[in-house]
Amino acid sequence: MAVLDVDSVSIRFGGLQALSDVSVRVQEWEIVGLIGPNGAGKTTLFNCITGFYRPNEGRVRFLGRDVTDVPIHERAASGMGRTFQQVGLVKGATVIENLITAQHAKVAYDDLSGIVGTPAVWRHERELRDRAMQILELVDLADLADRRVAGLPYGTMKNVEMAAVLATDPEILMLDEPSSGMGPEEAHELGDTLLRLRRELGLTILMIEHHVPLVVRVCDHVYCLNFGQLLTEGPPEDVRNHPEVVTAYLGEEAEEGDALAPAPPTSAPAAEGGGGDAPAGPGRRRRRPLRAGEAG
């Protein structure tokens, strides 16, 4: 069973077709990459999956359940953890407060006993704090526990955000450009962390990422979006060398290898203009049946 099954999702904003007929499937324990130039609709797809947007057509299934009409917080509580492009943290709170708040759905007492303050509440509160500390230790942030988020450097905030999402106890971790603001070394460490998280916590990961070496190293499978449509999908090396991807996104120098790292795609798609769009449009390929037997 696929953990996440995005089935032919389309969404329009006014006259703009932000996503058309996009299907993405993520299997258990997979790390799946979502790439594409800016404005391709990657974050829009995230918002459709997590419930911030309601797609005009198509369904989103999570752990076998159709969640298309389920509100954001219920999806989160059922194991959909996501980060935001602009750091989704409660910035006025401290690091550990964010991690404790993020455990909201797992808290074992109800609101009223919390306000009245029954003895069980005190015990549970201590457990929440302990669990938050464990997660911070797992991602090497324990020494920042009592720091206010607002004062932290951007890259650190990104890590804290990931820790906070881990605190929600997710089945799937959806990361929106986790390496932005990081240098190559930090990005490499991030890759280690992601692999370790999968190994130790059994996580499934879907990530939007521009940093190609990271994608190639950690992803099992990559989807490439362009102008709201699925351009191609497959193993990272294949997608990276796919001619349409190269034209649409990476540019000619892509073949040089890792040098294309952060690949700010501002000029590439603009320069290609209609050229990049043409093959994707009418001749749009159907989903390749990479993994047979899971149609459902």
Binding site: T50, F52, P71, I72, H73, E74, A76, A77, G81, R82, F84, G88, L89, V90, K91, G92, A93, T101, A102, H104, A105, A164, V165, T168
Partner: peptide, 15 residues
């Protein structure tokens, strides 16, 4: 308090 500071983050924390 989380909802006061950032409704989007709060709801993605499951609130």
């Amino acid at each position: 308090s989380a909802a006061r500071e950032n409704e989007q983050v709060a709801s993605s924390y499951g609130i």
